[in-house]
Amino acid sequence: MDEAVIVGADIVAGHDGTAELVVRLLHPDGSEHPVLLDEDTGLKLMEACGAASLEDLYGQSWRRIVPES
């Protein structure tokens, strides 16, 4: 593994009352960190990964979070 991958995903309540997505990233050095994505970004990530459920995100590259430029 040479880049961070998603190893967990959970829905959390955003401060603005929307459902947001927390993904846990496992980094190549073995550390794990949560990253909060707002509803829009979270939905885009699921779409980019063709994910229909949170589990479908597992193993996906962190790069999927960043929109293609």
Partner: peptide
């Protein structure tokens, strides 16, 4: 909405 994220 991500509210339904557990229902593919």
């Amino acid at each position: 909405s991500l509210f339904f994220a557990r229902l593919p």
